[in-house]
Amino acid sequence: MPDGGSSVGDDERIARAALTRVIEPGDERGGRWLAEMGPLELMARLTAPGLDDVPLPGASPRRVASYRIRAAAVDPLRDLEAVASFGGRFICPGEGEWPTQLDDLGDARPVGLWVRGRPDLRKWALRSVAVVGARACTPYGAHMAAGLGSGLAERGWVVVSGAAFGVDGSAHRGALAAGGATVAVLACGVNVAYPRGHTELLGRIAEQGLVVGELPPSDHPTPSRFILRNRVIAALTRGTVVVEAEYRSGSLATARSAQRLGRHTMGVPGPATSGLSGGVHELLRGEAVLVTDADEVAELVGEIGELAPERRGPVLPRDALDPLSARVLDALPASGALDGGRIAHAAGVTPDEALGRLYELQALGFVERHGESWQLTRTAVRRSNARRGGP
């Protein structure tokens, strides 16, 4: 279970729990009231009689009436008991488990977070990466997301996503398959299996990782809540990787939120002819960094020394030759033989230099001598054709 002291009293916790049913995720007006008045004063104003005569700043009487209707119907103690009944909890800003990077959202910061799972969210978020992408992804997208999920988990990174079909689910499954850590950030109550087809997956995440959401138990998702949920994914993590996304997608909204917050933004390239890669490629034309595997992601978002392995083609015997020997070798034709003088002329060296290099190349198995002439060995011809992409 999470540890760390709490500086939030029971009254404030109850008030914040109540406000998660009053203030919609990302409501900056409500966030400003909360910052200026505190949760206890705000709930008192929303539930006190006669408030209509003293409207809250920045809201019309009609909007205030809407908040008041919601506030009158809340039962925070019931919600807190409900989350405890399935092993969950409610965490507030100022507590030991609160991820302080969420404070970067300013007035759009969550009122609090409802959590299922045993690990400490703050500690896990310190070393976390978001992997997001298209719901209707291609097999390539699912493969890349699963590989990123497992690779990051094996390197000790927490994989954060939204538990949706497609890329999200593949990333979560990849992390779980590697025995690693993963966090699902939902746009509904943390006891709601959405999408329904991911009921088993969400159960596994709650058992092995964490399920997190801004909305109280049993609350339902809406299209706007999905979009607003993405800002939490972006703020919670060190960086966001997008795997397949169209030009208009929630995944791009997550990436742009990450950019505004100063987080790393990465994209996995796909075919230029694929509409599902169009949004990713647009990101890559801007400030996003191209990545192809977990090593490259960890190098970008990790600490000093977390470097991806150097990428290069196979080392060929010719690579070990000094520049002069390589020039002499290049002067020999793929078929037929030349005398030393013609080889020296073609290589731009003196006859003595050419002769000395040819004897060295003969000892290394690159050339053979026939009388006064020299030619490539069969092995060297095959190597030369392979290097040039020939038959």
Rank of each mutant, 00 (worst) to 15 (best):
174 G>P: 06
271 P>N: 08
222 T>K: 05
245 A>H: 11
222 T>E: 07
278 G>F: 04
203 G>L: 09
282 E>T: 13
265 T>G: 09
218 S>L: 02
281 H>S: 14
259 Q>Y: 00
153 A>F: 06
181 A>H: 10
271 P>F: 06
150 S>E: 12
233 I>Y: 03
280 V>W: 11
277 S>R: 02
171 A>M: 09
259 Q>R: 10
171 A>P: 10
153 A>P: 05
232 V>Y: 04
187 A>E: 10
179 G>R: 11
263 R>A: 06
166 G>Q: 02
254 T>F: 08
253 A>E: 12
234 A>I: 02
204 R>Y: 00
154 E>N: 13
249 S>E: 11
262 G>C: 10
227 I>T: 15
214 E>D: 03
205 I>S: 07
219 D>T: 06
162 G>K: 13
256 R>Q: 14
178 A>G: 07
264 H>V: 14
159 V>W: 09
225 R>Y: 00
221 P>I: 01
260 R>G: 11
167 V>I: 15
231 R>M: 10
172 H>Y: 09
226 F>N: 06
227 I>W: 06
267 G>I: 09
156 G>R: 14
145 A>D: 00
205 I>R: 08
183 V>L: 05
169 G>N: 11
278 G>Q: 13
202 L>T: 07
203 G>P: 11
149 G>L: 04
248 R>G: 07
189 G>P: 07
190 V>Q: 06
248 R>W: 09
266 M>Q: 13
255 A>V: 09
166 G>V: 03
211 V>G: 04
284 L>K: 07
252 L>Y: 12
251 S>I: 04
240 T>C: 05
192 V>M: 06
178 A>D: 06
150 S>C: 01
265 T>L: 13
225 R>W: 00
219 D>N: 03
157 W>P: 10
248 R>T: 11
252 L>N: 12
173 R>Q: 15
268 V>S: 08
239 G>H: 04
150 S>A: 14
273 T>K: 05
156 G>N: 13
153 A>Y: 04
171 A>Q: 09
215 L>V: 00
165 F>Y: 15
260 R>L: 12
185 V>T: 12
238 R>V: 03
213 G>K: 02
208 Q>C: 09
215 L>M: 10
234 A>P: 03
197 G>M: 01
273 T>C: 03
162 G>C: 14
216 P>Y: 04
242 V>Y: 02
279 G>A: 14
177 A>R: 12
206 A>H: 12
158 V>H: 02
276 L>Y: 07
193 A>R: 15
238 R>W: 03
178 A>Q: 07
264 H>T: 12
268 V>M: 08
